[in-house]
């Protein structure tokens, strides 16, 4: 049986991610693990994460997850980063006074700002918490069956600003233009929580579970 490995590095709530994947997986088992061998043998890999980036990056490095991520991305298998698991793939984050990240994607993780204002000059709450629309900036297999500008569930105080806009497949406006989904080759990463985004989120996870990692 094929395997989807959810990388466990002790940060956050992996229950929701694994339960949602189990719900959509077809003849695939879902394993929550930190074992490099199990992850190496999996056909699909998910890097989730919640909490502060400093703690996440510290655990990622302490457990050798950085090397596991690198190796599995290089192998060409479908790889999905979620929330802080997405931010960890950028070059660095402004959170916790500035933290170097894994640098898989060029670009930075920036603070929303205080105050954060909308187009009319009204104050927006931070964290960006709740259901916001995602504009599908480029087509990608994970958007299959999901309408453009569908709402997904977000919780974050820092947002990704990618250097290469060709990699941006999803954008959301919240005071700033946030790059909320990036993709390159076999890697896709999203800021929102598909595992908490009802039908649209489950569809995205199903698309990922069925994806072969190729975009052409």
């Amino acid at each position: 049986m094929k395997t989807i490995a959810v990388i466990d590095y002790g940060m956050g709530n992996l229950h929701s991610v694994s339960k949602a994947l189990e719900h959509v997986a077809n003849n695939q088992r879902v394993v929550v693990t930190s074992d490099p061998d199990v992850i190496r043998q999996a056909e699909h890999v998910v890097l989730p994460g919640v909490g502060a980036i400093r703690d996440c990056m510290a655990e990622i490095r302490r457990l050798g997850v950085d090397k596991v991520v690198q190796e599995n991305i290089a192998s060409g298998k479908p790889f999905l980063g979620i929330c802080v698991g997405y931010q960890a793939l950028m070059q660095d984050s402004e959170e916790n006074g500035g933290i170097p990240c894994l640098g898989h994607f060029d670009g930075h993780v920036r603070f929303f700002g205080d105050p954060l204002l909308d187009e009319k000059g009204e104050k927006l709450k931070v964290p960006h918490m709740g259901w916001n629309q995602v504009k599908q900036a480029h087509p990608h297999p994970i958007w299959q069956g999901i309408e453009d500008e569908t709402r997904f569930y977000f919780v974050h105080s820092y947002y990704v600003e990618a250097a290469n806009t060709d990699q941006v497949i999803g954008e959301t406006r919240y005071g700033k233009t946030c790059h909320v989904a990036l993709a390159q080759d076999n890697v896709v990463a999203v800021q929102f929580h598909p595992e908490k985004s009802h039908d649209a989120g489950l569809q995205l996870l199903k698309n990922f579970a069925e994806w072969d990692g190729k975009t052409a």
Binding site: L124, H128, N132, Q133, K135, F154, R173
Partner: peptide, 8 residues
């Protein structure tokens, strides 16, 4: 495009 208010 804006964040939705939530009903809980």
């Amino acid at each position: 495009m804006a964040l939705a208010k939530r009903i809980i």
